[in-house]
Amino acid sequence: MNVSEKKLWAAWSRFLTGMVGAILIGFLVPILVVVAVSFQSKSYLSFPPTDFSLRWYQQFIGNDDYRSAILNSMMIGAMAAALATVAGISTALAVVRAGVPGSTIVSALSVAPAILPQIVLAIGLFPISVWLGLQGTLWAVILAHAVIGLPFPFITVCGALASYSNRIEIASMTLGANSFQTFRLITLPMIRPAVIAGFIFAFAASLDELVLALFLSSPSTRTLPLLLWEQLNFQVTPEIAAAASVILAATSLLILAATLLPRLGKDN
């Protein structure tokens, strides 16, 4: 490499560093603004904040609408993530281990919900949910969120299964374990970190999903993002910023858990 090439590379790497920095700042600043706005006493969104107050957090905690929306979101998230994880493990086993015919198509379909526009899914799911008589029930949102959660456990478990040879499972079976015992005693412990991570990502995906909830839920099954959306249309107060900050904190904790828990599992 000659001198001018080296200079070119140096300039290119400075440019990339600058880009990444700008993206991070563009991503972080609005988050910081929301958090900052939530800790002040004025009854409108003002920035920069001039005082510190927990007024909007108190109001948020005392609000029954928020309480039931959080409960709904938690319940829907847990059920949807559980369904997505079971489906993701089964599909990953079929694709990676069994090598079912058309496994490429199965893979593509399992990842599709993460890529396709959710509005399309929502428009398609609405009549189905009406037809099945699920419209307005928790199950409608749970099933829809299970669909959008599926790609996460599917991808993490596929990766875990591909990282070791199926000889391990064959060995277990020659030693006398049937398919179920082999899955429970060998496969599942070996893919456990991937399963935990996939579950948490699916849960997080459900927790901040708006579009599907908008189409499929009723006032009694309102989720937290949906309530925020309705509040935004109605009146903008820092209470929304407080609610958003709580969601932000919860999601951040989940992501932290998704990164740390699998590692802990590996050490033990």
């Binding site: 020659t174 030693l175 006398g176 049937n178």
Partner: peptide, 10 residues
């Protein structure tokens, strides 16, 4: 496979 009671070393 699991009922054959055969030992295998890989």
């Amino acid at each position: 496979i699991y009922r054959r009671n055969i030992g295998m070393v890989f």
